[in-house]
């Protein structure tokens, strides 16, 4: 069974690996490239824990064939911070107790970042819509919504 070489830009760096036929991007990122920030929650496209961006759009890595990302730009939660400097959303999640078990958090942050990138001043309803594909079982939603609102309104601290 021939493996396919895949080269893509992951969080700003060119990365390459070999994908199995039919392998999804989630497995390729995690096992192939060692980016463990996207999480497996269902493999069915129903939980959002594997949310990444592909060419700037949020997608579900478990529903993307790894081989189709050749030459594309992929972003994950591991790339949110600028070096040691956290994204304001990450800081807000920390201050607002917007994570409990932390398993949905990377995907949630990718969705939240994508929202603020295209709509810096979302309403509460916009935020609800934007995170509706990211399940938090703990939950979680109220402080998450509040943390995203805080960033959009320029509030810092808890």
């Amino acid at each position: 069974m021939a493996k396919m070489p895949v080269t893509l830009t992951l969080n700003g760096m060119e990365r390459a690996g070999f994908a199995d036929p039919g392998q999804n991007l989630l497995e390729f990122l995690r096992r192939g490239l060692g980016d463990l920030s996207p999480k497996y929650g269902c493999g069915q496209g129903t939980c959002g824990a594997c949310t990444v961006t592909i060419d700037g759009e949020t997608q579900l890595a478990c529903l993307v064939l790894a081989e189709t990302t050749e030459g594309r730009t992929v972003g994950t939660a591991a790339g949110l911070a600028n070096g040691a400097e956290l994204d304001p959303l990450q800081t807000a999640f920390m201050d607002h107790f917007a994570a409990q078990c932390g398993y949905c958090t990377p995907g949630m942050l990718v969705s939240a970042r994508a929202l603020l990138d295209r709509n810096p001043k979302p309403t509460r309803e916009d935020i609800i819509e934007a995170i509706s594909g990211n399940l938090c079982r703990c939950t979680g939603y109220e402080p998450i919504i509040e943390a995203i609102l805080a960033v959009s309104e320029g509030r810092t601290g808890p």
Binding site: L36, S37, A77, A78, L80, A81, G102, T105, P106, L109
Partner: peptide
């Protein structure tokens, strides 16, 4: 919490 928000 920092591990959670950085995916680490």
């Amino acid at each position: 919490i920092e591990g959670h928000v950085t995916g680490r």
